[in-house]
């Protein structure tokens, strides 16, 4: 079970920026294909890079497990916009295909 400290850390990180991505590696050096895909799709919306906060779960094992419990979603990456869980790679790809991803982050361009 996730301890409160991890939960608070996750919650505060999610509210730190309008667009938040829990991923393996960083946007500059993604360490997993699915994480890299989400970073690429976010970049293709033209959103302002400073509006994105990303956390490398490979450097934080407690958050790596805690985030799965927090969103009841078993995999990474996980994208949050304005504090709301959007989904993993599949859902972000589907949103991008429908043009809904850029709508979602349009105010952060």
């Amino acid at each position: 079970m996730m301890n409160d400290q991890t939960k608070t850390k996750i919650e505060s990180f999610i509210s730190s920026k309008p667009v938040v991505l829990f991923m393996k590696g960083s946007p500059e050096f993604p360490m997993c294909g699915f994480s890299a895909k989400v970073v690429e799709l976010l970049a293709s919306t033209g959103m302002d890079r400073n509006q994105l906060a990303s956390l490398d779960v490979l450097e934080d094992p407690e958050v790596r497990e805690g985030i799965k419990e927090f969103s009841s979603w078993p995999t990474l990456p996980q994208l949050y916009v304005k504090g709301q869980f959007i989904g993993g790679c599949d859902i972000v790809m589907d949103l991008a295909e429908k043009g809904e991803l850029s709508d979602l982050v349009s105010e952060f361009k």
């Binding site: 009841s72 979603w73 078993p74 995999t75 869980f85 959007i86 989904g87 859902i91």
Partner: peptide, 18 residues
């Protein structure tokens, strides 16, 4: 919603994924 659909599926293989 799509997320709920996926969460229903993941719930079935929760241990194997964990």
């Amino acid at each position: 919603s799509m997320i709920q659909q996926h969460q229903m599926v993941y719930a079935l293989v929760k241990e194997e994924m964990a």
